[in-house]
Every structure is written in C-alpha cells, then in structure tokens.
Amino acid sequence: MSDTVVPHKAGSSAPRAGVASAPWLARLGASDVFYSFRRSRLTMAAAAVTLLFFLIAIFAPLLAVQNPFDPAQLQLMNSRIAPLWTADGQSPFLLGTDEQGRDVFSAILYGLRISLTVGLLGVLFSGTLGIVLGLIAGYFGGAVDSLIMRIADVQLTFPAILIALLINGVVKSVFGNRLDAMSMLAVLVVAIGLSFWVQYARTVRGSVMVEKNKDYVAAAQLIGLPAPVIMLRHVLPNTMGPVLVIATINLALAVITEATLSFLGSGMPDTMPSLGTLIRIGNNYLFAGEWWIVAFPGITLAALILSINLLGDWLRDALNPKLR
C-alpha cells in the first residue's frame, strides 16, 4: 500500500513538496523500486487501470459506436435510452444515451481523450515552464531568482482553481467570442498550465541550489561548458525524481480542475465534451432518474484520478526510501 503524499490542491505549497533528491534514474533502475512495485498489488492494479484508460483514449475511434463530436451522427430519436442491461436498454448503446442521443460509452471514450489531453498538456506546459524558471532562478540566483520567486509568491497566494478561472476569463475576453472547441481546449491547457508551475519551479530551484555547489558543477564550469548545457545535462537530471512525483499528482489535479471549470461553465463546450462537461450535463438529469448520464462519466473520472493518485503515491514512496 502506498505511503504518504500531500496533494497540492490549489497550488498552495505544502511544505512537504520536496522529495529527497537523488539520481532518479539510477534509483528507478534499482531493484528495490521494482520490488516495491511488484509487492503492492494495489499499485499494480492502479497502473493497469491508468494504462487501460490511456489505451482506450488512444483507440477511442475503434471502440466507440459513434463519434460523439460529430453532430450528424447523433439522432434525437435515440435520446435518453437507459443502459443495455436495463429493461429499456437498446443495442448498441451499452451505457445508454443522453439528451442529444449521444452514446454515453462513446462519449466517455472521447471525453477521456479530452480530459487526458488537457491534463497531460497542462502538466507538460506547467512542468516545462516551472522547470525552466526553477533552473534559471536556482542557477543564476540574485535578482533573477528573487523576481521569479516573487512572482511565484504572488501566485501561490491563490488557489489554482481561482487562477484557472481568471486566466480563462482573460483569454476569452481578449479573443472575444469566437473561440471554437479546439481553442477552448488550448485555453484550458494554458489556464491549468499557468496555475501549476510554481511547485516545479520551487522544487527544481531548491535542488539546483544544492547541486550547483557540488564539485562536478564547478568542474564543468572550469572546463568551460556553457550554463544551459550544465543546467540541462548535469543539474536537471538530478531533480527529475521529485518533478516526476509532482507531475503525476498534478495530472490528477489538472483533470479535476478541468472538470471543475466545466462545472462552473468555463470548460469544454457541450458539443465537444470532456469528462467534466459530461458530468456537468449529467448532473442536471440526476433527479430525473436518468442516472446513467452522470454516473458512468463520474465513475470513470473518479477511477482515473484514483489510479493516477495511487501511482503518484507509490512513486513518491519508492523514490523516498526513508518512509518505507
């Protein structure tokens, strides 16, 4: 079973963000990491579920009975059909259909795609931004460092969801009302990305400040290697362990943030729903007894986040042997 992780909801820095920095590749290769992985059946199950979700997201077009994003494929006459195993079920709608005649199973597959895309791109965005800023701040120190860290301070004052809402609003108002579904997706990625970079920056900065005083960095400087090379080739790899842990946990947070933005009406549009949008739409039908519209996307989302969190937990423990 996993040990501890402090989830970093809302971008506030919990003081326990750091994980002992160590050459993570070596550690990952070390047999005890894989031993701990194999030992924990729960972690293995979580890994399997996560993998499954990624696979069905990738192969959604092959598995789905319809493309829920193509309005021509939705028939109103097929709307609000109950799941297949109930008395009112109809083939081929395994998990039933929603108000627009959208097959819930297909919508989940495609929605999973959107949610994971937003999550992964958001994490990639925030990770890249945070790592670069953290490297710069930690390596150069001085005025650059304090400027970056002051910005981080200001941002840390606010929970990520509030920042994401604000950024969403800013982008939307700047680009006016002409955002289509794809640009909405980009906006979400940017909003989530900009909300979560601080943790990476702080962690990387901390590690860099430790590493840069070590002999090998001094040696690299002596032989005249340029700063970017030293940072990327020598310092960065040493910070990857904690970054990986943060990224895993943030992936779950990014997916939740996306769903929450959708709930508040700032997420993906109804014509191209993510899991969060599906839950928002389905919520309206819960009282009506059309539970399947919200239940299945809800279960999927919860299972996705749960398994990612379990993986994050395990990763954190595996890289921090002190706690085992």
Binding site: A259, F263, I279, N283, V294, A302, I305, L306, N309
Partner: peptide, 11 residues
Amino acid sequence: SLIGISLPTFL
C-alpha cells in the same frame, strides 16, 4: 482519503 481527493467537490 483517496476517494476524498478523487471525487470533484460538486459531485
């Protein structure tokens, strides 16, 4: 605790 962080608040 895991479920607590895995279910969106509104749900």
